[in-house]
Every structure is written in structure tokens, then in C-alpha cells.
Design a binder for these strands. Structure first.
Lengths: 213, 213
DNA sequence: CGACATACATAGGGATCACTATGTAAAGTG
DNA sequence: CACTTTACATAGTGATCCCTATGTATGTCG
């Protein structure tokens, strides 16, 4: 019915989607190739034919990851008129869900980082991924500063790296203890990195009520 | 010769040190209990007698982790007279080494975070760990603001979370691509979060020369 | 429509791993 | 110095996992 090429690419897509979900949820080493194949409704034979092995699957996943993330970073920002809305969109896009896979995005981010640090081949890809994220955000910042009429007090590259760092580090803490990292705290930090005045009319962050052990 | 108690605690210490090193270097799942036992010059029998299993070893490791980190966070700060020196000490302490285990500190941080997110029992401990880190830094900030005569423009809890977030996120990027995250970029971000003026007399951050793929 | 190539399925092997049951030397105790 | 307990070592087992060799249905092409 379908051509061989379409069938093949569909299988590849299913395998990568299953691997993304399972690697994020359970981790790379805790996920068996048979589990990935089963979740994709295929067999390990197909997986080995496509990727050559478990590590090949990881590399392919990370390469796809680059394109989809750079797109996702800017996608949630369209249609948001004000600057705070855009900053907030970046944050909620990070912790709520990537729009497709729940909070798998964040888990996969750290999972892949660990492999990137431990494996030079993966590390190259991971470094390139963040270079593109920073460059994309830096470009956006320059556009924003023109659009909203504020001034960048540091090179856009620098501010981009700082904004990404704050978002990553806040998500890191938020996932362990959500109430300790309310949205206002993140937005306030982002604004301070941009050297913007604190947003007027916003109530001060709520008193911390995170449960104490 | 030695008492049984001292012998036992010494074995426990060796096992935990070996597990720390190996879990950080290779990851939890990629590290076998036999490898941990061998690195500690003991056998798996000792390991199971102490921790009941591999997961028990991880829990014990994380619990030790709490105390040692809070201590380490403030330890590198003594004897540094100026504020920039202290901020710089926090950063270099994060990326250079923890003073004992190379850069294992950072790897273990993210490794344990993933387990904390996936396992509720571990998650409780991890959340408590960061609560203590934030509280410790918040207290330090209030002392600093008095000592150095600057004013906190936001609650100390909030600023502490933001500083930690920036440090974590910067370390995250730095480990993938060190030249893309020079020290000055980190210090500038920390200062902006503290609403301090940019440091005078400091050359602007070097042009980025990170290799492009 | 027949021969070939492709895409994937099936079955199984070799290695590794977490864990357990049992043995044993040393420390503790009266 | 007999006896018990502690702290760890030894040896082995079932399960799991990554990978490979081979089989087969379906698309492809002259």
C-alpha cells in the first residue's frame, strides 16, 4: 500500500517518539531497546536496522532534538503582545509542558546533558544545541529591544546565556519543589537580568509556604 | 585491633565515597554494585549489609549529600574579603571542583536530580536539600548586605533562589561549552540579580570565540 | 508477472547484573 | 578461655539486556 520510503520514515518517527518518551520518563539505561520497540509497535529488529544500536538511537534522538527545540523556543512566543507575556511564555513552556510530551522536555534535557558530558560525541551535539539556543534568543532579544524600546546593557549573547541559565536553574528547583519557585519569582529574575524596572502593580511574591520536613 | 564500630563506619565511608565517584562519573544505572564494592575494596556482601541494596545506597548517598553541600556552599566563602570575590568563589567552586572530587559535584547534582524527579522518596530528600541551600544563601545575603552596604531589592529568599538558578544554569551550559560561558558573564549576571552596578574597570566580556560546527 | 531488494519480524545466545544464602574471622562478653 | 555476636566474604542463581543471525512479507522493477 504505502511506499517503502514512507513506511520506513514512519517507523523511524514512531521509534524516536517512543524513545523520547521512555528516555525522559525512566532514563536511558533503565529503558530497554525492547521497551522502545514495543512502545512504537515495532520490534527490536526494526530498531537495529534503523539506528544500529541503542547508542545510535540516542544520537539520532539528540539530533532531532536540536531542530525541534529551537523551533519550540520561539514558537510559544508568537501572538504574545507584551514583553512580560513573552518572558512568562518561555517559563511556562519550560515547566508546564512542551505542548506535546507533558514535562518530558525538562527531564530529557537533563538526561541528555548527562550523556553529553560523559560521551564526547554526544557532547559535541549538545554544545551545538545550546549554541543555537543562545544565538536564537540573542537575535530575539535585539528584535525585542527595538520593538519594546528598552536597551540591552550587555551584549545580547551574554544576556541570552544568562536568561537561559536562569530558566534552566529555576526549572531545576521548581521541579523538586514547585511552591518554592512561584512564577513571579522567575519573572522578577528575568526582568532583573534585562535591567528592566520591577513590574509595577504586581503584588510582592507570596510568603513561602513550602512544607518544611 | 579496631573496634567493630569504627571498622563498620570506615567501611560505610569507603562505600559511600566509591559510590559518589562512580555514580557521578558513569551514572547510577551504569554502575554495578560490584564495581562500587570493588572501588571501596570491599565486597557486595558488605554493601548489602550496610544499605540493603543499590537503591538504599543511593538514598544514603543523598542524605550525606545534604550536609556536605550546605557546608561546601559556605566553606569556600570564608577568607574572601570583597563581594565579587565571594560571588566568584561560588562560581569557581561549582565548576572547578568541589575541592575533593574534581567536577564530580556537578555531575552528581544532575544525576541525583533525575532520580529525585522520578522517585518520590528521593524527591523529598532532594527538595529538602535545595530548601537548605536557599535558606543558607538567603541568610548569607542578609549578612552580606549589611557588611557591604548594599540593599536587597527583593526578599532574600527570592534572590537566593535566583542566584542558585543562575549558577546552576550557567554551570549547565559551561560544562557543554566552557568558552561560551566565561567567568565575567556569570559574575555580571549575579551582579544584575543583586541589582548592583556593573563592576567598574572590568573589560567587557571577550568576543565569543566558541568554535562553530 | 517473475526476480530481486527492502523493511521488518523472530528466535536465541552471551554477558551482565542485582540480589541471596551461607561461610568465617574477628571483636565482644562473662 | 568458652561462647555469642558482629561484620564482612564467598559463591551462586534467576532475570534481564543488548545484540545478531536468520526468516518472511511487501514493495519495486524489467
Amino acid at each position: 500500500m504505502a511506499t517503502q520510503e514512507s513506511r520506513r520514515s514512519e517507523t523511524r518517527r514512531l521509534l524516536l517518539a517512543a524513545a523520547t518518551e521512555l528516555f525522559a520518563r525512566n532514563g536511558y539505561h533503565a529503558t530497554s531497546v525492547e521497551a522502545v520497540a514495543a512502545a512504537a509497535e515495532r520490534t527490536t529488529g526494526a530498531l537495529y536496522n534503523h539506528f544500529g544500536g541503542k547508542s545510535g538511537l540516542l544520537v539520532a534522538l539528540l539530533e532531532d532534538w536540536i531542530a525541534s527545540t529551537v523551533a519550540g523556543l520561539t514558537a510559544g512566543l508568537r501572538g504574545v503582545p507584551d514583553l512580560d507575556g513573552r518572558l512568562g511564555a518561555m517559563w511556562t513552556g519550560l515547566i508546564d509542558s512542551d505542548g506535546e510530551g507533558g514535562d518530558a522536555w525538562l527531564l530529557l534535557e537533563f538526561e541528555l546533558w548527562l550523556h553529553a558530558v560523559r560521551d564526547p560525541e554526544i557532547g559535541q551535539i549538545g554544545a551545538e544545541r545550546f549554541r543555537q539556543m543562545r544565538a536564537g534568543l540573542a537575535g530575539g532579544l535585539e528584535d525585542w529591544s527595538a520593538e519594546f524600546g528598552f536597551e540591552l546593557t550587555a551584549p545580547a549573547d551574554e544576556v541570552a546565556a544568562q536568561l537561559i541559565a536562569l530558566l534552566v536553574g529555576m526549572a531545576f528547583q521548581h521541579r523538586l519543589d514547585p511552591v518554592a519557585v512561584p512564577t513571579g519569582m522567575v519573572l522578577a529574575g528575568l526582568r532583573r537580568l534585562l535591567d528592566l524596572p520591577a513590574r509595577p502593580g504586581l503584588p510582592p511574591p507570596a510568603v513561602q509556604i513550602s512544607a518544611s520536613a
